[in-house]
Simulated scan of single mutants.
Amino acid sequence: MLPEHENIYTIPNMLTMTRLISAPVIGFLILKHKIWLSFGLFAYSSVTDFIDGYIARKYNMKSVVGSVIDPMADKMLMVICTGCLAMIGQMPMYLAVIILGRDGLLALSAIYYRYISLPPPKTFARYWDFSIPSAQVYPTTISKYNTLFQMVYVAGEVIRPAMITLVDPQVIPMVDTGFQCFGAFVGLTTILSGLSYVFSKDAVKILTKK
């Protein structure tokens, strides 16, 4: 039996909420070129992403809302960091377009699935009441890897200006080439990740009362 409401005030969900809140702060720090502060907060978001998932599995604190806001926090972090890094010229524009375009399409899909799966009455207040479970998201395998690759790439781009000052000037071209190659790889996995949601039959499960 699917409960009409579920407990959303769990430790994993609270950690996820701190990640949601920290995302715009990280973007602001990137725009202000606060390299180590932005990297530190980004590292916090990455670590808590692992911790909240571990706690949810270990102590049976999984929830429908957690399955939604956890990838939402990941995507918000990636979208904000990608946009800010592109604005300051730290990330190639083509890669920013791929990442933001893919996440934009997934966001529209999430809005659609939330609406069609929400039990009646379909009111505005109930739509945004995430304690009412309606659909559950199951990230595809390539999507999980892509999230990791994006986090590593974005973290590297955040600290690259500081990294370059610490290495031999002769090594800088190699570092730049490495970032370019890894960026192209991230772009490819991002495209494959988006396609995996289109062709997977198990990525979204609509929950219905029985």
Rank of each mutant, 00 (worst) to 15 (best):
V79Y: 06
F149E: 04
G53R: 02
W128I: 15
P161K: 06
Y113M: 11
F130W: 06
A135F: 15
Q150N: 08
Q90D: 10
K122N: 15
I88P: 04
P173V: 01
Y138M: 12
I142E: 00
G83Y: 02
A96N: 02
L77E: 05
V79H: 07
Y59L: 12
I80P: 01
A56W: 00
I88S: 09
Y112V: 06
G89V: 05
V171C: 08
A107G: 11
L106V: 11
P121F: 04
Y145F: 15
A110E: 07
K122M: 13
D168S: 14
M61A: 14
F130H: 09
M163K: 11
L95Q: 00
M174Q: 10
T177V: 10
E157C: 10
I98W: 01
S131Y: 00
V79L: 13
I116M: 11
A107M: 10
D168G: 11
P121R: 03
A96H: 03
A162K: 04
A125K: 15
F179V: 02
I55L: 04
M151P: 06
R102C: 01
D129V: 00
A107V: 09
L108H: 05
L85E: 00
T141K: 12
L77Y: 09
K62H: 15
R114W: 06
I55H: 03
L77V: 12
V167K: 04
P139Y: 09
Q90E: 13
R114L: 07
L95N: 01
Q150Y: 01
L118P: 08
I159G: 00
I69V: 09
V79M: 14
K144F: 04
G83I: 00
T165R: 13
F130K: 08
V154F: 01
A56P: 00
L105R: 13
T141N: 15
V167D: 05
T147G: 06
M78E: 05
Y113S: 06
P169S: 06
